[in-house]
Design a protein around this nucleic acid. Structure first.
Length: 278
DNA sequence: AGACAAACCTGTCTGC
DNA sequence: TGCAGACAGGTTTGTC
């Protein structure tokens, strides 16, 4: 489900809980990511403190609490949702963590597939958390220049689309936006990363920024599951140019090639063989 | 290094 | 209608 634009949309729509005090933290008892247990004792140390601010690095949300030395680290995996519920809201299946607030609202983390992650990191030492330690450049927060992307691609013989999914290089791009950015830059997903010229790297960096910005403007992409923290889906699906459009005509003006689906490193990969020639 | 498969899970859709 | 199988926005781990 969630890539950088969706996670950023969740971050922004969580704003209404900033300032509200956490009274209680509950956990279902189920393990999440990789069957690892949730540190519920750590999460409970937020009780008594108000939500301070919510940051994002790549696909991770960082939830801070006033005057607390620890923060919550949240990854939505494939099917995770972080939502604000008004007092008296009905139960949601597959709910795994609940922050109850003093005003009766709740912030709930639900995740049917349990591929997501909820953990605890130390304020000021966020990057010591194993999930955050190796994350690369965040295109939105840090800015991704053509020169930086070109430098990162040196020495990698991976297909460029596989390279873009590596969170240690660029953090936040997933299967949808890798395909969309490569289409916009007219670059074939199978091109080896080290073959990228400085000029093409600049075009790709710009395409990544453009696609992510546009998707955030539309509230992210909802293929089926994704909703933001207020329960609303994103609108970017109708702007997708190649993802999940196998056999359909390429939307590029004057192209009209047929979108092709291949499998790259086990993931569906969509591109136009006619206009993505580089 | 990198290519692959499997693993972690549930839900949904397709085809027979 | 029912059921098996494929597939899904992610990441880690192990093997070759």
């Amino acid at each position: 489900m969630p890539e950088l634009p969706e996670v950023e949309t969740v971050r922004r729509t969580l704003a209404p809980v900033v300032g509200a005090t956490v009274t209680k933290v509950w956990h279902s008892g189920f393990p999440l990511h990789l069957n690892r247990p949730v540190d519920i004792r750590g999460l409970r140390r937020a009780a008594g403190a108000p939500f301070a601010r919510i940051d994002r690095i790549g696909k991770f949300l960082l939830v801070y609490f006033d005057d607390r030395p620890e923060l919550a680290v949240v990854h939505l995996g494939m099917s995770g949702r972080l939502r604000v519920f008004e007092p008296g809201a009905g139960e949601v299946p597959h709910t795994h963590v609940v922050w109850s607030l003093g005003d009766g609202r709740q912030v709930r983390y639900s995740d049917p597939r349990r591929f997501g992650f909820v953990g605890v990191a130390r304020v000021g030492a966020e990057r010591e958390h194993p999930s955050l330690a190796d994350l690369g450049i965040d295109p939105l927060t840090d800015g991704l220049s053509g020169a930086a992307l070109h430098e990162l691609t040196r020495g990698s013989r991976q297909p460029l689309k596989v390279f873009l999914l590596d969170q240690r290089k660029v953090a936040g791009i997933g299967n949808i936006y890798a395909a969309e950015a490569l289409w916009l830059a007219r670059i074939r997903p199978t091109v080896r990363a080290h073959r990228l010229s400085a000029r093409r790297a600049a075009a790709l960096a710009a395409a990544i920024g453009s696609v992510l910005d546009h998707a955030i403007t539309r509230g992210g992409t909802s293929l089926r599951d994704f909703v933001n923290a207020t329960g609303n889906p994103g609108d970017y699906r109708k702007h997708l140019r190649v993802y999940d459009r196998e056999g359909q005509p390429c939307p590029r003006r004057g192209c009209a090639g047929a979108i092709r689906r291949i499998v790259s490193q086990g993931r569906a990969t969509f591109y136009c063989p006619r206009c993505q020639q580089y």
